[in-house]
Each structure stands twice: as C-alpha cells, then as structure tokens.
Design a protein around this nucleic acid. Structure first.
Length: 424
RNA sequence: GUGGGAGUAGCUCAACUGGCAGAGCACCAGGUUGUGGCCCUGGCGGUCGCGGGUUCAAGUCCCGUCUCUCACCCCA
C-alpha cells in the first residue's frame, strides 16, 4: 500500500507500543532532576531566527546549514529550535529570573529540529533532555551538571560510557591560543584537509577536532590549550577536575574536545558510548559565560548539557536495560446478549472508578473472540456474563493464569472484585 | 550537501539466465451452537515505493524520483 502521506524525512512516529520506554526514561529523568532541585522549563518550539544565529554562532554548522527557518505572514523570520540553551537563556533574560533568585536551575525534555541528512542516531526531529544552571561561575556548578548527567546514565544501568573533559578557555585566553595554534599550524597548513584549511581562518580550534587521520597526526604535537589558559580558567578547570575526583566520577581529559557551538567557555565535556557507531556522543555540554551578553542581555554565567533521547534508547535497547513492562488488565468483562452487555458496561465503569483497569468488547463479538482478546490483553481475570448469569444472579470469575473459575453473587460482584483484585 | 546499499502482504523475507506474485508470523472465522493460550482447517490481505523507458512479455533490465539505511561533514 502506498500512502500519500507519511512522516516527513528524518521524523518518526512514537507508537503506543514503544511509549513505555519513553515514559520510563522521562520518569527517571524527572525523579533525578527533582532530587538535584532542577525545575522544568518549557519554551516555544520556534524562536526569532537571530536568537540562534547570534547565540549559537554564525560559523557553526547548525546555523549555516541545519536550521528550519521560515517567514511568517508578516515577513518575520523564525526558526524551529535546533537546541535549547539559547531559548532558556532568552527566557531567563526576558523574565528577569536573575532578579527573583540568585541561581536558576532548570531542566527540559523537549523536541529539537535540525535539517540534516538522517543517519543512525540522527534525526530531523529528535528529543533532548538537558539541564542549565544560570547565575554562577562556581566550578561546583559545572560539576553538579556533569554529575547529574552521569548519575542518570548510571542509574539506568549503562556501562561503557566515557566522560571526556576539556577547557576551551575564555575571551581572555582563547584568542591567544587561537593565534598560537595558527602559528604552529601555518607550516603544515597545505597538508591539512580542505575543511581544516577553512577552519584555520574561521575557527582554528575545530582543527583539533578533525577526525581525519592525517589532520590528527599533524596536530598531535601541537601545544594543548592547557598551557595557554589564563589564571582564572586554569584554576577553574583545576577545581572542576578536583571536585570530580572527589565525588569519584572518572573522566578522561581530551585536549581535542572543542564542541561545535561557539558559546562555550571554560568547561566543555561529552559523554560517549562505544555502542553507537559514529554518532557516539550521548551527552554534550559545558559552560557558556558569554551567551547571555551575546544575545543582548547582561552578562550572566551559565553551564549545562543536552543529551539525546533517541540515542539513549538505542543504547538501552542494545544493552537490554529497559525493565520488562507488563501491560495488563485487571479484568476483562465479557457480555453476551443486550442485557448482559448493559450490565457489563455499567459494572466496568464502576470498577474503573475504583481504580481497576477494565476492558469490555465494543462489537458484540463471540465469546471465543472476547476470550481471545482478554488473553491477548493479558487480563488477570475474566468475567463471563450472559442471560443465564443474570437470571441465576451468579457471575463466574475466571483466573486466566490457572484457568480456575469461581462464582460470585451478582449483587456483591463489584465489591468483591474491588476487594480481591483491586489495589489500594 | 557528497558517496555506498536497500525498497515485494500489517511484520520478517522468498521468487533461476525477464514468462500466471509466494511462505512464515500476525489478523479474522470455523473445528468446540457459552470459555483464552496448544493443535487442525479455511479466509482476508499486493498498482512488487512512485514515474518513465526497453521488450511479445518487467518484481526482475535501463533512466529518473521519493523514502529508508550506512558512511562523510557535524552533532544529541
């Protein structure tokens, strides 16, 4: 069958059958975020295009080629959000959240949009969860962010995850390092790949991140940024590492980790898994002390991460880490004949009001069909009601697992069921 | 945006060098006129992704296109 309408390229329906996985992850996320005292924030799915252009940075791939941008009827340019940090900072500034509380700790679980070629672990609409702490430069805030991300993955039971850590400096020291990098690479500039030759001018730090064998070799001997960090960045980075060690969160310093968004300062980190192939980053984040100012507000420091739910689900599936979900019914009520169906319907309503999960047949199907349905729905019990039962005033209740059957007087049926099958 | 692989029933897949489009599972019904799962029997279900071309004849060959998939770029 060829349907005229299908999900747009790179998008997916999340069908009822897979929803338990999403609910499970969302439940654990909210639970752990709440314990760390983060509160949820929701912002519009689209924003002023300039918010992203300026916030994320004009030279980034996200802005240059991945944004879903459209004009509204007034000719104004909007963009479906490709990430959530810029909108959160925008909301923080717009609502003067810094005035009401010194520190804002926020989390989100929300869809994002990027117009890229779909691939394993990459979609055009995907979901991210993330946290942000705004209003402090304290290294402990960085560590809290990293901790909450790692703790979540640990609680899910994930093994084989690696935390990669670096500092990308600040406005004081990064320009110095950029120049130094250019000086050191200039002699080999012609040997770098085409992308890297461009990066040499636009964003030399990204050359370190190139995955090409040749480029990596050429940059192997380059001085790491550590040697050029200003005193403040150096001590900040040192403290982050010390605190992580203190709370026993293993990390791997990675001088090549620079991240693709321009707004990062100081701490940058990624959590990767070796189960995912080339899209191995499962969580990425860092500090962004210049972002608020960049989008036109006061300078407000912040730190946060974003992580992808679809990728996480892939990893969880591979590792078999989702708990067995056992969708079931407490009771399937079978009605045969008009009078019985009416009784069954009224009884089902009464039981549902008392917190039992009940189902009935809508289509006057045969007893066999209804039994089959009860079995398929994994019903704990089935009650079979026809003319005889109404006449005799006695309802047979069948325990599906064992097949044993007992009769319950019709006038006390609901009460007995609520008592014996129901939960408090 | 660039390159490789793939699209046949709801799902997983067959169909030789072009010659009537199939199986398993699932679904529905019957065997059992009021008792699920197991078993048996039958049934429903396809514009072979879409469009064009070659041919007496195309699921099969050619071109285009869409989608999926993998990789590059980059990212969650």
């Amino acid at each position: 069958m060829t349907l005229q309408f299908q999900t747009p390229r790179g998008t997916k329906d999340i069908l009822p059958g897979e929803m338990p996985k999403w609910h499970y992850l969302e439940h654990v996320l909210r639970d752990i975020f709440t314990k760390y005292n983060f509160r949820e924030i929701r912002t519009p799915v689209f924003e002023d295009t300039d918010l992203f252009a300026r916030g994320i940075g004009g030279t980034t791939d996200i802005v240059q080629k991945e944004m879903y941008t459209f004009l509204d009827k007034g000719g104004k340019s909007y963009t479906l959000r490709p990430e959530m940090t810029a909108p959160v900072v925008r909301a923080y500034l717009q609502h003067h959240l810094g005035q009401t509380k010194a520190l804002q700790k926020m989390y989100y679980i929300a869809p994002m949009f990027r117009q890229e070629r779909p691939q394993a672990g990459r979609f055009r609409q995907f979901h991210q969860y993330g946290v942000e702490i705004m209003g402090t430069q304290a290294p402990l805030a960085d560590v809290e962010i990293i901790t909450v991300g790692v703790e979540f993955l640990r609680r899910l039971g994930l093994k084989d995850i690696h935390l990669k850590l670096n500092s990308v400096g600040c406005l004081v020291c990064r320009p110095v390092y950029k120049l130094e990098l250019q000086n050191q690479l200039r002699p080999v500039l012609e040997q770098l790949c085409g992308d890297c030759r461009n990066r040499f001018h636009t964003n030399p730090l990204r050359i370190l991140d190139c995955k090409k064998e040749n480029c990596r070799a050429l940059t192997e001997e380059v001085d790491p940024i550590d040697n050029y960090l200003c005193d403040e960045c150096k001590s900040h980075f040192g403290e982050v590492k010390a605190l992580l060690t203190e709370v026993k969160i293993p990390f791997e310093p990675d001088k090549r980790l620079v991240r693709g968004l321009d707004y990062y300062t100081k701490t940058a980190f990624e959590i990767i898994t070796d189960q995912l192939g080339s899209q191995d980053a499962i969580c990425g984040g860092g500090r962004y002390d210049m972002l608020a100012k960049e989008i036109g507000g006061d300078a407000v420091p912040g730190v946060g991460f974003a992580a992808g739910l679809e990728r996480l689900i892939t990893v969880m599936d591979k590792a078999g880490l989702f708990p067995e979900t056992d969708p079931h019914l407490d009771l399937y009520l079978i009605g045969l004949g008009d009078a019985a169906r009416s009784w069954v319907y009224r009884t089902a309503m009464q039981l549902r009001r008392n917190n039992l999960i009940c189902e009935i047949d809508y289509q006057q199907r045969s007893l066999k069909a209804q039994m089959r349905e009860a079995n398929r729905l994994n019903a704990g019990f089935t009650a079979i009601v026809g003319e005889n039962e109404l006449k005799n005033g006695s309802i047979p209740l069948k325990k599906m697992e064992t097949g044993e059957q007992s009769d319950i007087p019709i006038e006390v049926f609901a009460g007995e069921i609520i008592k014996s099958v129901g939960r408090s």
